[in-house]
Amino acid sequence: MTDFLINWIAGIPVTAAPYALAALGLIISERSGILNLSAEGLMLVGAMTGVASCIVLGGHPLIALVIAMVASSVVSLLFAMLTVVLRINQVIAGLAIVFFCQGLTGLIGNLAGWQNHPIAGLDKWTIGPLSEIPGIGKILFIQDPVVYLAIPIFYLVNRVLRFSMVGLNLRAVGENPAAADAAGVSVALYRIAAIVAGSALVGLAGAYISVVGVKLWFTGMVGGRGWIAVALVIFARWAPWPALGGALLFGCIEAVIPRIAAAGIRVPQYLMLMLPYLATIAVMVWAGATQRGGAGEPGALGQPHVREERR
């Protein structure tokens, strides 16, 4: 039983990291007022480019993760152009990008023959003697570098959002673009930058699933985690630390599913696989029932900004 618990808890960071990174990336772009539904698609781009880079480079998983981040950012420029420059409906734009990415990754990945091609992936770091501590050692000191990096990334994003001029301008653009515009802040520039920067993290989340988690790529492998990340952002009221908490909760659920089967407990496996999605809905219901309407939501979320409006 103790072994089961330790293995389970030690497995949580790996399952939680994609949710956490994707949600953080979405928080950055949504704080600028862009309703971002593109996560599922950009995670697919990250997942494919991550594995593709590993195959092409013959290893170097950390470089592969960086390439995946860049690739997602580049694709997100299309989303930025649709929502910020062309000001089309952000729901339609987000959905179109998701399907665009599904089609694109499926096409390129299959034509190039990357489907189901196993890779070495990213190894865990063992932090010296600390990892020998029974229980805690395995949980805290044998994890991969991205998990260790996630904490400073969260700290940094939170700090920039709350205590810097860039963060102040970004939040102003998301809350009241007309006021930010009148104050001399470029609404379009901040929104594009927020989408691109956030999408790098979303891409990292996708690449993490393929390069660190599964260690291979197949079509549509993100499996709805991008949508769960979108829900997580609403649940966290657009704040980084609660999003990390929510990600850990989903990590718990996702990590327990294979372990229950492995422990020989007989449960209907397909019903177990529903759990993350049902849990997401449950969390949204809880959020809707307990939180005051609109708290934390950027005031201009989903609204394009046009300055020269005749009143």
Binding site: L78, I97, F100, G103, L104, G106
Partner: peptide, 12 residues
């Protein structure tokens, strides 16, 4: 998936 890609391009 090519069909999916084309659908997305048309919508965009």
């Amino acid at each position: 998936t090519m069909v999916q890609l084309i659908q997305a391009i048309i919508v965009i």
